[in-house]
């Protein structure tokens, strides 16, 4: 029936996509795996993998996950209400665009701006002083790191949630309210389940890249936070040890697959 037709329409569209996967995903993965089993002199070795299980790298992996988790959590906490309220505004598409626009200004520049804003003599500390407190060290702390990361990812989280909220049938909510459900129950039982796909999309595009954040670990966290991305960067560009860098990248890809399994989007109804 309908599903079969969908199948047929779909084979053609997949061709460029499959081509893209072969050339720009499979080929680089093959290269990474190949490099990961080479030592500095280009001979086969498994020592890179053994090294990944030493305390230094394990500790780094754990802290990477912890920070990625925090970042994702806070991004979701701030993004969901924003997306929800945006759908209630008059010019909602315009407001949504205005959420995206800041992300088009170069990240390094914005990071420099944050350095100025959070600085000891920046506007935030000036405000703190107005209220009679001593200036606080905001830069180079866990707080500033998580804050700027959330700043970077928030549009990526808002958009899918906005899109799934936007097309939601309002009569469902009215129905729930008419049946006597409280706002919280309506949200928990009706709204949230209906937007779960958008939330999952948002989590994927936040959590996964958060594992490999690198630039702001140095600029905003002053290297007090070291993520897997930072380590790979260092191995490639400073140590020029592509083997070890690739090994960490292999693990990163494995972690990504695991994340995907956890946030898998189940297809509903009789389609596919």
């Amino acid at each position: 029936m309908g599903t079969k037709i969908m199948n047929k329409t779909a084979k053609g569209p997949l061709i460029p996509y499959i081509f893209w996967i072969l050339l720009f995903v499979i080929a680089p993965i093959a290269l990474i795996v190949y490099y990961s089993v080479l030592d500095l002199n280009g001979n086969f070795t498994l020592t890179n993998y053994a090294k990944f299980f030493t305390p230094v790298y394990l500790k780094m992996t754990l802290s990477s996950f912890w920070y990625a988790f925090l970042i994702t959590l806070f991004t979701l906490l701030f993004a969901y209400p924003t997306a929800y309220l945006l759908t209630k505004t008059k010019h909602k598409q315009l407001w949504l665009m205005l959420i995206i626009i800041p992300s088009w200004i170069n990240l390094l520049l914005k990071t420099y701006a944050f350095i100025g804003i959070f600085g000891l003599y920046g506007p935030i500390n000036a405000m703190i002083e107005v209220f009679g407190f001593n200036p606080k060290q905001i830069l180079f702390t866990d707080f500033s790191f998580v804050f700027v990361s959330v700043y970077i990812f928030i549009p990526f989280m808002i958009i899918p949630i906005f899109n799934s909220l936007d097309k939601m049938n309002p009569s469902l909510i009215y129905a729930a309210r008419d049946l006597g459900a409280s706002s919280w129950t309506t949200f928990r039982r009706v709204i949230f389940p209906l937007t779960i796909d958008g939330v999952k999309s948002g989590i994927q595009v936040t959590f996964i890249p958060a594992l490999s954040l690198f630039m702001i670990t140095r600029l905003i966290a002053g290297n007090q936070v070291i993520t897997l991305g930072t380590a790979i960067e260092q191995q490639f560009l400073v140590s020029q040890n592509w083997g070890m860098g690739s090994t960490i990248a292999v693990f990163l890809i494995l972690f990504m697959v695991l994340t995907m399994l956890f946030t898998r989007q189940k297809s509903k109804g009789g389609r596919v």
């Binding site: 720009f24 995903v25 680089p28 690198f214 592509w242 990163l252 990504m256």
Partner: peptide, 23 residues
Amino acid sequence: LLSLNNVLIVSPDVVIGASFLIL
């Protein structure tokens, strides 16, 4: 396919850049 799709999102830029350059 979905996992493969995300490989480039999770890969650090340096890895993508270097492997594309080699490619």
